[in-house]
Design a protein around this nucleic acid. Structure first.
Lengths: 183, 183
DNA sequence: CACCGCATGTAACGTGTTACATGATTCA
DNA sequence: TGAATCATGTAACACGTTACATGCGGTG
């Protein structure tokens, strides 16, 4: 999810042909998000089918240019955040939900395992400085930041779940100013 | 992503037929994750194809039971956290990455817009107490928590991105003990 | 020459999503 | 009777992913 809009964003900057879009996409993401070339072409076909881009054939080179419709669609993409109604399916959340439905003991067990796994992942992300020796250090650093922040949020959520399972059900506090998630 | 494993988890508790799995899945997720019945049957077909479940036909009722193979697969699911190599595609991250590749001014603009959108979403999530009047208040509360924590993490990450774009590129600090994301 | 990078595709598969068709049962 | 719920499926589509095929051009 995102290849479609990603290519559209690149084409908003300048017209380009398929292969160049692949390299541009990978460069924009600091080289950490590889993209199969084949997907570029299929995605371009769909974009053309939907009238968001136009192609001009020149000597075997198909150059793609964004259309007015595409510009509008892209503008909406920049501004909006994907609606979560119904809430986006998240693997970790689903896992804990299912474990809860199988019983609180099972749930606490899964939470413990998941916390250990996420903590290991977090440490790995913190140790490896992905920013250096990448094509675009800033982009790579941002992706790295995202992984770290996301993992921290997962830990925090696991703590909240454990609280909800261990404290009496009357106490349904919202996660407002709580912090930590370090254990 | 997750329906497959979700159904498998439910079948690990007890054998069931298709329609019951739909209601069980929705009940387990506090009623906030609706599931089309059709998908249950297609997913069950795939699970059966892969040998993770077995079906016993009885008077038009196809009852599904998890197999040993399914139990093993499910056990791995409980323990592991999805590997992020390459890092999972995230819409917000992709958006900012693409904006960065189009120029820092564009990027800061998109970051501002996205922050506003995420903040609005966060406030909406904090206001609506999804825990009450749901089939499973605990599950619904957990999903609500996840949305809140996730949105907070997104805000935090947007702040970090802004820092990386506005501070001199020499300073590449890691997001260790930083907190805030309240603006 | 053989290999690698450039460049364009096609085919197949996996999963998720929606819409639609078909019956049986239950209940106001 | 008519509507809602239960119950089982099929068809079509979207998107992502991988593998594969093909041809060109430069370079060791």
């Amino acid at each position: 999810m995102g290849v479609r809009e990603g290519l559209l964003a690149l084409l908003a900057d300048a017209p380009a042909y398929g292969y160049r879009l692949k390299t541009a996409f990978e460069a924009a993401t600091g080289g950490v998000w590889p993209l199969n070339v084949g997907q570029v072409y299929t995605t371009l076909d769909r974009l053309e089918r939907d009238g968001l881009v136009e192609a001009t054939e020149d000597d075997g080179q198909r150059s793609y240019r964004i259309t007015g419709e595409g510009v509008r669609e892209l503008g909406a993409w920049w501004e909006t955040v994907p609606v979560d109604e119904p809430p986006a399916r998240d693997e970790l959340v689903l896992k804990v939900m299912m474990a809860v439905s199988l019983g609180p003991d099972h749930a606490l067990d899964v939470i413990t395992r998941q916390r250990a796994a996420v903590m290991a992942l977090l440490q790995r992300h913190r140790r490896t400085p992905r920013s250096s020796s990448a094509r675009d250090p800033v982009a790579a650093a941002m992706v790295s930041d995202a992984l770290i922040v996301r993992a921290e949020a997962d830990l925090r959520w696991l703590d909240l779940c454990e609280e909800r399972l261990t404290t009496p059900p009357a106490t349904t506090a919202r996660p407002h100013a709580r912090r930590g998630a370090t254990r």
